[in-house]
Design a protein around this nucleic acid. Structure first.
Lengths: 203, 203, 203, 203
DNA sequence: CATGAATGAGAATTCATTCAT
DNA sequence: AATGAATGAATTCTCATTCAT
């Protein structure tokens, strides 16, 4: 009865949605959410303004989708999904992956960090991505720090989080100014690992 | 035959300017720069829209003034003004003051962090406040870390900065959600001091 | 080798057309013509937007079809089809039928009255439905009032029309507010009949 | 301190507001609310689009203001403000004034009748203007009909209302087609008066 | 110094309609 | 006959900024 199968339509929609979101992430990150008009976005994506509203209810809804999908992706990357305990090796791997994730998805982080500070957005998110991340990682990290004999596991978690976010912050802020060389970032990563991962005696 | 002396006029101007900036900081931080209209600002400050333009060339100029004055203030608070070397005690004091500053001027940090991530603003600032802060503090901190026998002073500086910014970030983000208790922040502060300030043998 | 006979196709078309018009009447009356999008209509009717254009040239054409069909139906109901004269009994029957029609097709009247007041629509209709109704009913009513000895038959016709339209108006306006009880409407009907139908001496 | 006195500003606002509403009434009535864009309205009123929003929150708010003010005006014209009883002479005067009001403010009635049938508007008004009119006039008319010995005062009120609204309806609908001559309207008026006002014996 | 009416450029959004499949 | 993605013109609305007083 339908000339294109439901699957075809769904595929078209999925592709378009992805295309719009990719363009939007690129543009929002490089130009700033507020300074990006739908016209600009549509032009860049090669679609009509109207079509955007076929996929997202509003400019804000598009932003939210970006944030949600993005944090979901990142969470999946970071989450080792070891429901059980974390060995020092795995902890090191977790930290490395996290840093890698940030360095790879810089655009998302620019968007995320800038947008997360806007009250309206924060309200909407209601602490969502951060909260989710913490909730999903907390038990794992907590038991890890406890197992490794850290005195105040909660404090360690906070410190680790701060170091990661501070890193994202500086990456985002300094990178376009070319101030932060890759080598420095590498050293920083090692430094953080040294702080939270005990040296193995006989590997 | 001037009814008010030059001094009186200057005082009026100075007060108005301060009043406008205070209102703006409050409003920009709580509502977001983009979502604040001049009308809203004027209304809140109890002045007319036109008057605002008597004191600031544009909305953007007001923002820049806010950022400049704010970072100047903070810089002054943090700067021990010891042109010479930093003793461990002084380093500890520096870190404590810095944290104190962040906890006190949360509104400024919300504004600063959110605004600093907007490309247009970053461009305009051209790294200004951060650069200034770093430029003014760098020699001092660098020589401090060197004197204390840290292996890679630059890396330590980066780490310290990340810890401070990460702290600001989390404070800003979590505070309105009531997630971060003061006690935790205190412990965090101590943790950071322990990382960078060697214990004194005989106090 | 046609899989369906011409009759089957025509039946399908006829059914669809009716289905679309029913949905449209419902929706236009309850939401207002202007506030109804084709998307909304298609959704409610369970068809695609495109299909609607297979049956009606435009949204406006659909509206016109609604008005035409509706007034045709009503006209047929009201029209006693006595090409000749109207007896008092028949006049009473005419009035009763008319009121009954209005009370039954409230939705059509909402649409009709609201739409008829829009200049564009009025222009397009060019007085059509009313004119048709009047043209078909006028001679009959005129001769009736004349035969019954009313002094100014034209004035009586106008008065009767006003009472009918005023009734429709109040029904439409007050009904959703539940202000107009059925009993009151009944009494109103009797009142109107008393005005225009002389009492029969020996029934 | 203020260059123009508050009074001056208020006068300016009042005048502009009136000017916008006058233009809007004219335009909405002749072109239909939906087909009138703010651009068209602003152009006709000789102001900028933005200014309209300085006076009315939205196109809809403007419409509502029109309806409210208009029905208030009409109510004041019709209301004889005789808190006490209505003599036959006064009743006649009331009916005449009402018809006069409708014939004079045809534009308002076109707008009112067309708009009142739109569900959204009806919802917003929540029966307001009609309700107010009825509430203010009901006691007066009811006691009048009772005093004059009418059997069912409520029914008489309903009939009178229907005759008035039917008249408005036909005026609005037929007038632009030039079908309704003034003489006919006059006769109609007399007819209605005859229905509800008893003939005086010795004038 | 101070006001707020007025502007107008641009932004977001809507939706009837088309068309490839 | 049927679908729904895609279009784009039109529309509503926002707001930084100007200016007469």
């Amino acid at each position: 009865m339908s000339p294109r199968s439901r699957e075809q339509f769904e595929e078209i929609r999925e592709n378009r949605r992805k295309q719009i979101m990719d363009t939007a992430l690129e543009l929002f990150a490089s130009e700033g959410y507020s300074h990006c008009s739908i016209a600009m976005l549509a032009g860049r994506a090669g679609i009509s303004k109207g079509l955007m509203y076929n996929y997202f209810e509003s400019k804000e809804a598009l932003l939210m989708a970006l944030i949600n999908d993005g944090s979901e992706d990142i969470l999946n990357l970071m989450d080792p999904n070891h429901d059980g305990v974390l060995s020092p090796d795995e902890a090191e791997h977790f930290i490395r992956t996290t840093f890698q994730t940030i360095r790879t998805n810089t655009k998302f982080w620019i968007l995320f960090l800038s947008v997360v500070l806007q009250p309206k957005v924060r309200e909407f998110l209601n602490g969502q991505p951060f909260r989710t991340i913490l909730e999903r990682l907390e038990p794992m990290l907590f038991s890890y720090f406890k197992a490794q004999g850290f005195e105040d596991p909660e404090l360690e978690m906070l410190t680790l989080s701060a170091l990661i976010e501070g890193f994202a912050m500086m990456l985002v802020y300094f990178h376009p100014h070319g101030i932060l060389p890759a080598a420095t970032m590498d050293k920083y990563e090692e430094r953080v690992i040294r702080m939270f991962v005990p040296k193995q005696k006989n590997p």
